[in-house]
Design a protein around this nucleic acid. Structure first.
Lengths: 249, 249
DNA sequence: ATAAAACGAACGAACGTTCGATATTGTGTT
DNA sequence: AACACAATATCGAACGTTCGTTCGTTTTAT
């Protein structure tokens, strides 16, 4: 029904090096170092060091001396890649919308008017599928780019206004798509949630998506894979979450 | 069925000043200032300033000069209350388990053995009620102490080991109680989730609890009260979340 | 007038960033 | 192939600033 993480990676040809190719593609104009091969390699070292250190002590408490040690570069060397500490954070935050635009499925999906609810089951199933597809894609992207998602979530709030703007725009776009698709499901299945309830459900789903990349180590210790989690969420959708209000069993 | 936030406050006699009475009670031994009335008033100013500043820029980026300005105290004056910046954070983190121990309902709740499943509905209902009670109490406490919960969540990970220990112990206690009560529901209602699934559900519930105090302003803008949210979660429980695995509607 | 509380200038440590010196790489000429 | 010379990339000592914290002094309350 919904595709697996392996399928997703295959479909988008997501290799390990593709991350750094894309990252270089997005930021190469800002770099002082012009050789692409060298730049990709050093950017990888710097970003991975940033993820480790900011995961351990937080970006604010991460020192550029820490970063130099962890990435095996010198203090000055790092500055040929990042410009400043703040821009380092900005580069990371900007990467996520860039990847979204390259991977997320556009759903031109004609809006559900009252007229074409004829074949109900079909329409309802398609609305459900559109929601679940979006959930799976987000989940799989966050699996592929866990450190990036983690960083974006943890550091967005406490960054400069410029960075916060990037992060909040990205977040609210996601929230909005989620809301629309939840609303479509509730309309198509004639359960007609109030706008408030649909929003509540959409926010809940986002929390559960975040839970995956925030607590991935815990899930893995319990032998829960990302495919397991995707199925788990799909079942929540297919069962009670978007039903009419309140009649308990 | 489940009590309201107003009932909860009434039952525990939670007034605005009670927060500071309890906070002083927990920490008075460490203070250099001995006059209780003065200390409570100044502690309130310092903590509220800490919440505002760490909410805006994060605790790591909050300066003690910021704190002095925001709380209308001098740099030196603050140190008669907090000892050090790290101890200020520790004092906040320690407060939550202290409040839990004073307010959370102990459920001595005989463990559900196979033998007393006779009156099934009754047992199942009681297991469900125990879970929902715990959820509501957590929700209401987080409503009463939103800044404290917010601070504990955002700053726990990036604190000293001593602080992290307090925060993680508190979190995993909550997680464990949640897990037990979810498992009890699934046993009592003969749906017998796997241990893995019960844990997944318990973690999901915790995410949804956190969502309340992390995004409270958004919920409020949508006119969602804490009682609304409590009912919403209760309905999720009473409907699909803890049902057998997988048969979609 | 004595104790309690608040104050803020001053200190050393550590931070982000710069920049001139050094090392490495790539290219054109023997 | 060997060399030389730019061009490119890396380095880390040094700078100015800001941080958490201290402590001798002043203010307030009894």
């Amino acid at each position: 029904m919904n595709l697996s993480f392996a399928d997703f990676k295959l479909h988008h040809q997501l290799s390990e090096s593709k991350v750094w190719d894309w990252f270089y593609q997005l930021h190469h104009a800002k770099l002082e170092v012009k050789n692409p091969a060298i730049a990709k390699q050093k950017l990888k070292r710097i970003m991975q060091a940033t993820f480790k250190l900011s995961h351990d002590k937080g970006f604010a408490l991460m020192t550029l001396r820490d970063l130099a040690r962890q990435s095996d570069l010198s203090l000055g060397g790092i500055y040929s890649y990042i410009g400043s500490k703040e821009q380092l954070a900005l580069m990371i935050h900007q990467f996520l919308p860039f990847v979204f635009s390259k991977t997320l499925t556009r759903h031109p999906e004609q809006p559900l008017s009252q007229s074409n609810l004829a074949k109900e089951n079909c329409v309802a199933e398609r609305a459900r599928a559109a929601l679940i597809t979006f959930i799976c894609e987000h989940l799989y992207l966050s699996e592929w780019l866990t450190p990036w998602f983690f960083f974006a979530f943890m550091e967005a709030k406490y960054s400069s206004p410029k960075i916060r703007k990037v992060a909040l725009e990205n977040e609210s776009t996601t929230q909005q798509v989620l809301f629309e698709r939840v609303a479509n499901v509730s309309i198509a299945s004639h359960h007609e949630l109030s706008q408030q309830s649909a929003l509540l459900v959409a926010m809940n789903i986002k929390s559960l998506l975040q839970s995956w990349y925030l607590k991935r180590p815990i899930y893995h210790k319990q032998k829960v894979t990302v495919d397991d989690y995707a199925n788990h969420l799909a079942q929540l959708i297919n069962r009670g979450i978007i039903d009419g209000n309140g009649q308990s069993k």
